[in-house]
Amino acid sequence: MPPAATTDAVWRPHVTVACVVSDGARYLMVEEDVAGRLAYNQPAGHLEDRESLVDAAVRETLEETGWTVQPTHLIGVHQWRSTEHGEGVIRFSFAARPLGHDPSRSLDTGIRRALWLSRAEIAALGERLRSPLVLQSIDAWLAGARFPLDALHWLAEPAAP
């Protein structure tokens, strides 16, 4: 069968990234409008074409919070089926340290604000969390999950001649 004919039959999960950014016992979160409801999440979003996972995590955090961060570790790779849209998601969760904040930066569409919350405050949000991966990532971080970033390999495309 020609490759074009099989393309539609291949399952393609959403590839996403998220950052657990800690400042002591507080974590950087976003408050966002999602399908008409208020939800809370880590800075997170989709991997773009021709982008490394680490670069996507830095970009999404900046776009959603105005914070520039430096990823320090991979916390884990989480696979689940979204209750929001019903499709498969592969999420790469990173630990990152905050470097600086630009309070004048416009935030992504749908993001109401960035805020810092404790783990207890995040857990108390319950059903308002965007996904179960929010607490799972924080708890993995607190349990010591830290994989080196060089465990991820990205082969950039060669420059055009």
Rank of each mutant, 00 (worst) to 15 (best):
149 L>K: 05
110 G>D: 08
125 L>K: 12
58 V>F: 05
133 L>G: 15
7 T>W: 02
46 H>I: 01
81 R>M: 13
53 L>P: 09
141 W>Q: 11
125 L>S: 09
70 Q>S: 06
93 S>K: 11
14 H>D: 15
120 A>P: 01
148 P>F: 13
59 R>F: 03
146 R>L: 07
33 D>C: 12
2 P>L: 10
54 V>C: 11
79 Q>F: 07
30 V>G: 12
141 W>V: 07
119 R>Q: 09
124 A>K: 04
156 A>L: 00
114 A>I: 07
84 E>P: 00
84 E>G: 08
78 H>N: 05
87 E>V: 00
34 V>Q: 05
28 L>H: 08
42 Q>M: 10
47 L>S: 03
103 P>I: 03
139 D>C: 00
14 H>N: 15
159 A>E: 15
108 D>C: 04
10 V>H: 08
10 V>K: 08
8 D>E: 13
142 L>G: 10
48 E>L: 02
71 P>S: 14
31 E>Y: 02
138 I>N: 01
144 G>P: 09
70 Q>T: 00
4 A>I: 00
95 A>T: 00
36 G>V: 11
35 A>Y: 05
125 L>W: 06
14 H>G: 12
38 L>R: 15
46 H>V: 01
13 P>H: 08
159 A>I: 06
68 T>N: 12
19 C>W: 04
130 R>Q: 05
65 T>V: 06
145 A>W: 05
69 V>I: 06
12 R>Y: 04
73 H>P: 09
155 L>H: 15
128 R>K: 14
141 W>K: 06
68 T>W: 10
40 Y>W: 13
82 S>R: 09
83 T>P: 05
3 P>E: 13
93 S>Y: 09
79 Q>H: 14
4 A>F: 01
130 R>C: 06
32 E>N: 11
62 L>A: 08
8 D>L: 07
81 R>C: 12
15 V>T: 13
4 A>D: 04
160 A>N: 13
108 D>Q: 09
107 L>H: 08
50 R>Q: 12
45 G>V: 00
31 E>C: 10
30 V>S: 12
77 V>S: 10
104 S>T: 00
147 F>E: 08
41 N>F: 02
97 R>H: 10
4 A>H: 04
96 A>H: 03
86 G>N: 13
4 A>V: 00
152 L>V: 03
45 G>S: 05
10 V>E: 11
21 V>S: 14
41 N>T: 04
161 P>K: 02
146 R>I: 02
150 D>K: 01
42 Q>K: 00
40 Y>S: 08
4 A>W: 00
77 V>F: 03
110 G>S: 03
112 R>E: 14
13 P>V: 01
65 T>D: 03
77 V>N: 12
74 L>H: 02
120 A>L: 08
31 E>K: 11
161 P>S: 14
62 L>E: 12
103 P>C: 09
123 A>C: 07
37 R>P: 02
128 R>E: 15
11 W>G: 14
67 W>E: 08
43 P>K: 06
92 F>I: 10
64 E>C: 02
6 T>K: 11
35 A>M: 03
19 C>A: 13
88 G>F: 05
22 S>Y: 05
35 A>E: 09
49 D>T: 09
31 E>V: 06
40 Y>N: 10
161 P>W: 03
117 L>Q: 05
91 R>N: 15
90 I>R: 13
8 D>C: 00
24 G>C: 01
130 R>L: 01
120 A>E: 15
65 T>Q: 04
131 S>D: 14
1 M>Q: 09
56 A>I: 03
73 H>G: 15
